[in-house]
Amino acid sequence: MTFPLFAEVFLKGILTGLVYGLMALGLSVIFGVVRVVNFAHGEFAVLAMYAAFVLFGLYKVDPIIASVPVAFAFFLIGYGLQRTIVQPFVTRPQHEQFILLVGLALVLVNAMLMVFGPESRQVDLPYSLDTWMIGPLMIDKVRVYGALAALVVTAALFAFFRFTLTGTAIRAAADNLVGAAVVGLDVKKLYALSFGVGLACVGAAGSIMTALTDMTPMLAPSYTLLAFTIVIVGGLGSMAGALGGGLLIGAAEAVASAAISPSMKSMVSFGLLVIVLALRPQGLFGKAES
């Protein structure tokens, strides 16, 4: 592989990685606070893709713009889901949480299959094929826009957690649940908010992804696995980790599919996962538990 080609592929991977990172951020926020692994994460990502697809079909809304309303709708779904279905499972063993969310994943993916069918769909944006030339490098415009949108959403989220009272309360609950309850925070509400924020991340990321790639319901499990890989590499429960992990996995998969073969890209990210687990079980950005 020549250097310009490598640089181009690498850059493409980084740009996609920002969107992956946003998706994984959702998983990380939910686990960090509620301590439930959302095994239906990829299913929600694909659901968001179809939401953006429908908005584009009906009202010609650009999927990148659509990330805002989709994220908002997903926030409400997440909030409702935690309040109704997930909350009773917070204290149940991990394998029972797993079955609940796998059940939910089955419902989601098959509902999409029944509504949209198994064939792959995509949106044709007017600038889908536009590129910029930076020196010898050819960069897709749509990928840049998508990455920027993901960055904006991520920055907004960081601001929410850092500067708002609710965000601080959520961080407090993630840090020390008993302490949060003792100082009078409504933990159940914080859980619901966190699940909502987590799904808003997937909603935005899925929506943006619609601009970048085709969709089929069958993709859902692989997105779930992708999100897992990213958060473990970055550090489960660490926000910066999800983002860093997204960049790393995005770049690694892009380079691997160009250099070896597309089917080997997940192999490479799993290889990274194993290496990271062996060297730093808490993830690259995670804090060691004492």
């Binding site: 149940r92 059940g103 089955l106």
Partner: peptide, 22 residues
């Protein structure tokens, strides 16, 4: 008999069973 109908109901049943029988 749409494809997916069975798995959808199966998924929903799983959620109900696991919620009902800790």
């Amino acid at each position: 008999n749409a494809p997916g109908a069975k798995a959808l109901v199966y998924g929903a049943l799983l959620m109900i069973i696991i919620a009902a029988t800790p």
